[in-house]
C-alpha cells in the first residue's frame, strides 16, 4: 500500500503558527503544579496495585505461607528465584502444612518485576509489593534470602484458609 503524502499548505509552510502553538504549551506549564520530583530526597507514592519487588508473606498466624512448591522458580523468566526444599525431616510444629522452604532466594538484580511468581503461586505466598528501587553495594547483597523476603513481605491475611479448614475437618471427624 502506498500512502500518499500531501504537500504542506502555504500556511503550514510559514512554521510560525506551529511555533506559537508549541510555546503556548510550554508557557501554560509555568503556571501549573510541578510534576517532577526531587528524587531521591522526594519519594514517589505508588498507586494501589503497583507491581514492584516480590516478597514472601506470612499468614495471620505468623506462618510462612510458602510451601516450597517451586512453581515460581519454574515460571520465573529471568531465573531470579532459587528455592531450597526442606528435605525429608518431619517438622512437627508445622502440623498439617508439612512443608516450607529451607531457603528462598530472589536475585533482585535479575528480577524483572513481571509478577509471574505471584500469579502462579497456589498458596498466595508471594506478592509483588510497592518497592521499586532496590540498591546495594555488592551482588551478594542483592540476593534477598528467606528472612529478608519475609521481613519485607509482612503479613497478608486471606479468606482462603485451606490448611486450617483441613485441620478443623479432621478434628471434627475424630470427635464424631
Amino acid at each position: 500500500m502506498i500512502i500518499k503524502r500531501n504537500p504542506l499548505t502555504w500556511f503550514e509552510k510559514l512554521y510560525i503558527p506551529a511555533l506559537i502553538g508549541g510555546f503556548k504549551v510550554t508557557l501554560s506549564h509555568f503556571f501549573k503544579k510541578k510534576v517532577t520530583m526531587q528524587y531521591p530526597e522526594e519519594k514517589w507514592t505508588v498507586p494501589e496495585g503497583y507491581r514492584g519487588a516480590p516478597y514472601l508473606v506470612k499468614d495471620e498466624k505468623d506462618r510462612t505461607k510458602c510451601v516450597s512448591c517451586q512453581l515460581c522458580e519454574f515460571v520465573c523468566p529471568p531465573k531470579a528465584i532459587k528455592i531450597t526444599p526442606p528435605g525429608p525431616e518431619v517438622n512437627a510444629e508445622r502440623g498439617n502444612i508439612e512443608k516450607e522452604p529451607e531457603q528462598f532466594e530472589i536475585n533482585m538484580l535479575r528480577c524483572i518485576f513481571c509478577g509471574y511468581c505471584q500469579e502462579v503461586c497456589p498458596e498466595e505466598a508471594i506478592f509483588l509489593q510497592k518497592d521499586y528501587s532496590l540498591t546495594g553495594e555488592s551482588r551478594e547483597e542483592m540476593i534477598y534470602d528467606k528472612t529478608t523476603l519475609l521481613e519485607l513481605g509482612g503479613v497478608k491475611e486471606s479468606n482462603i484458609k485451606k490448611w486450617d479448614k483441613k485441620a478443623a475437618d479432621a478434628k471434627a471427624q475424630q470427635s464424631h
Partner: peptide, 12 residues
C-alpha cells in the same frame, strides 16, 4: 520415598 521426600520437584 523418604530419601527423595521434599528434595526436588520432579519437573526440574
Amino acid at each position: 520415598s523418604k530419601d527423595f521426600r521434599f528434595q526436588m520437584r520432579v519437573w526440574f
